[in-house]
């Protein structure tokens, strides 16, 4: 079950990367980032059964960072939406050169 869980984590992470590369909707992009964070959490939990409890402590920190990241990221999305009336990434080229 541990090895299978690690494989599942790798699969979920790949799907998250695919979403970030392919989609252009900023909200769905954030959802895919959350998916990748969850895949890493699953790997931590699976390895914690083999190595030690510290893996589960790290999952706690990852969750806190994910919550902070979601709050700030969604605030940025709201302020960009207020500026350009869309969340499509092809309009977010302010920092591109």
């Amino acid at each position: 079950m541990l090895t299978n869980s690690l494989v599942l984590a790798a699969i979920l992470f790949s799907i998250g990367v695919l979403g970030v590369v392919v989609r252009r909707n900023a909200i769905i992009l954030f959802l895919c980032i959350e998916l990748m964070l969850n895949a890493v959490n699953l790997a931590f939990v699976a390895l914690s059964r083999a190595v030690g409890i510290e893996g589960q402590v790290f999952v706690f920190f990852v969750m806190a960072v994910a919550a902070a990241e979601a709050a700030v990221g969604l605030a940025i999305v709201i302020s960009i939406f207020r500026h350009s009336e869309t969340v499509d990434l092809k309009n977010f080229n302010l920092l591109r050169w």
Partner: peptide, 19 residues
């Protein structure tokens, strides 16, 4: 559910509440 199957009960509860 997978966390709970792996024996991480607290992380499973945290997953439902936080995520």
């Amino acid at each position: 559910a997978i966390y709970i199957l792996l024996g991480a009960h607290f992380i499973g509860a945290l997953q439902v509440m936080v995520y």
